[in-house]
């Protein structure tokens, strides 16, 4: 059972502003107040009009009614929640959107043990980054390889939000990621 503060509008407004910062400045680590940053992301963005796939069963039965999101399989879901420390399942194919409506590409929310100080050292470039930015991320490298495949044909693609218990970063589809140390 998780803290209910993430379902309060005041908290969600603060969380949204940090999410917007994270998406518009990829690689900048944003700290959220309270616990379960990843749950806070879902609570801020989900309601009964969106669908959610929980690949690694990280949500408790009590969370679903609060999130209100419909359960869907990962190929159809608006939001895909997964454990970033585990390898992505073989054949995972989130929605990439269509040329006329690329916003229908899925948002992947990765839960990972640590954002910003441990794990792979990445070099990021693209919109929102002045030249390049560096970021440490404790995710399975396979996620980044798959992300690159999904985002090969801009404007189609998926947008990543990667969060641990208190921090988050955004990796929109436009961000180029290079692993420089693993």
């Amino acid at each position: 059972m998780t803290s209910s503060v993430v379902f309060e509008p005041r908290h969600q407004q603060q969380a949204y502003r940090r999410l917007l910062q994270a998406m518009s400045r990829p690689g900048s680590v944003q700290t959220l107040p309270g616990t379960s940053a990843w749950l806070c992301v879902l609570a801020t963005l989900c309601d009964a009009t969106v669908s959610l796939a929980d690949i690694h069963e990280r949500l408790g039965a009590a969370d679903w009614p609060f999130l209100q999101a419909r359960r869907a399989n990962p190929a159809q879901a608006d939001f895909v929640l997964a454990d970033g420390a585990l390898e992505p399942p073989a054949g995972l194919a989130p929605r990439l959107g269509i040329l006329a409506s690329p916003e229908t590409g899925a948002t992947v929310v990765l839960i990972c043990p640590s954002v910003g100080d441990k794990g792979l050292l990445l070099e990021l470039s693209g919109p929102g980054i002045e030249s390049t930015a560096r970021l440490r991320l404790a995710v399975a490298q396979q996620w980044l390889a798959r992300r690159e495949q999904w985002n090969a044909a801009f404007p189609l693609g998926v947008d990543f939000i990667i969060a641990d218990e208190s921090r988050l970063v955004g990796l929109p589809r436009t961000t180029k990621v290079k692993v420089i140390e693993d």
């Binding site: 969600q12 801020t44 309601d47």
Partner: peptide
């Protein structure tokens, strides 16, 4: 309520704004 719009309206605008940022100019 705070901010006039109901929370569902805000959530939808927030989701779409994040997508707008992720796909610059779309």
């Amino acid at each position: 309520q705070y901010g006039f719009l109901d929370e569902y309206a805000k959530k939808e605008i927030r989701r779409q704004t994040l997508k707008a940022v992720a796909i610059p100019g779309y």
